[in-house]
């Protein structure tokens, strides 16, 4: 599912932000236009895509946010909006009255939440998020980015129960932005992260909440017992891929994902279909992985990686390795 950025500015400054590099390069006033929205919609439709993810920055900052969402729904897209949930009451009221009755299957908000005690934010922000969650309840899935090994999920269980949110948590792991300085989970700490995550198994079970792990987790770091638990409690098990999803900026430039936003950036106008874009970025990923198989030395020989059961971790880690070493790679790879 492609991601479309409505804006390039955000109301928060998360320490792990993997969009920061992209946003630093962009004009904060760069907003998606109606013309570009129509072009993107036509492009996706002509490729047979029926789903779209809406990102920012903070997408609700776009002055036409509501109109854009209604337009996408009218074009029969299944829409996922990634938001902080932080907005003025007047805007929230307007959005609520317009979108409240859209079926949950057609519109979902993924609210990226930070633990108020570990990633402090102002009381006003926290209250604003809570208002958003209480308004949209069943339309909201929590998203949480793990950027420190001592992360805590308790507040999420509380939010889900308190506001009647979807019984699922989208768990991402903070990845490095090659050449930039964001906070992320070091490769050596991934074992600790997984161990800590599995400590929450009793909570997931007790509250009947399903974890959904995002890209970049390496398969080999989970034990068979842990994988069995994921399979039993998520229905389909966990995914360990790192394939290009691709983001579309307001100016219709595209890139593989935020951590790789400066790597082989292209324009949507250069491609005819989504398939062409996937193939393009997949080839770029393959180029990187032909230099280094995955984030661990054993990835090179791993049959599960070769069979694409696991991607060998996030490709941004590999590019970061290239940036920090002597220029021994082919220039085309570490562009």
């Amino acid at each position: 599912m492609p991601n479309v950025l409505f804006t390039q500015s955000c109301v928060r400054s998360c320490p792990y932000c993997f969009a920061s590099e992209q946003m630093k390069e962009s004009d904060p006033n760069d907003l998606l236009s109606w013309e570009n929205l129509i072009y993107v919609s036509d492009f996706l439709k002509s490729s047979g895509e029926r789903s779209i993810s809406v990102l920012g920055g903070e997408p609700t900052l776009h002055p036409d946010f509501l109109e854009f969402i209604i337009y996408l729904l009218e074009r029969d897209f299944v829409v996922r909006v990634f938001t902080s949930g932080i907005m003025a009451n007047t805007k929230l009221d307007k959005i609520t009255s317009a979108l409240m009755n859209i079926p949950d299957e057609q519109l979902t908000f993924i609210v990226n939440l930070n633990n108020p005690s570990q990633t402090p934010s102002s009381l006003a922000e926290t209250e604003s998020v809570k208002r958003f969650l209480s308004m949209f309840g069943t339309k909201v899935m929590c998203g949480f980015n793990i950027y420190r090994v001592d992360f805590e999920l308790d507040f999420l269980f509380q939010y889900i129960n308190c506001f009647g949110l979807k019984k699922s948590i989208r768990l991402g792991i903070a990845h490095p932005i090659p050449g930039a300085k964001n906070i992320y989970i070091n490769i050596n700490d991934i074992d600790h992260v997984i161990a800590r995550l599995m400590n929450y198994v009793p909570f997931f079970e007790r509250f009947r909440i399903r974890p959904s792990i995002d890209c970049g987790f390496p398969l080999c770091r989970f034990t068979d017992t842990q994988l069995g638990w994921f399979t039993r409690h998520t229905g389909s098990g966990a995914k360990f891929g790192c394939s290009p999803v691709f983001d579309i900026g307001p100016d219709l430039r595209i890139w593989s994902c935020f951590p790789l936003s400066s790597y082989y950036k292209r324009s949507l106008f250069e491609f005819d279909t989504i398939g062409d874009i996937y193939r393009f970025f997949k080839e770029k990923h393959r180029m990187i992985r032909s230099e280094v198989g995955g984030i661990y030395p054993e990835c090179d020989e791993c049959s599960l990686r070769e069979d694409e059961v696991c991607s060998g971790g996030c490709v941004a880690h590999l590019l970061s390795i290239f940036k920090d070493e002597a220029p021994v790679r082919m220039p085309v790879v570490c562009q």
Partner: peptide, 10 residues
């Protein structure tokens, strides 16, 4: 100019 396109696309 934009609204003609919006209507047409719908």
């Amino acid at each position: 100019y934009t609204e003609l396109r919006i209507l047409s696309s719908l």
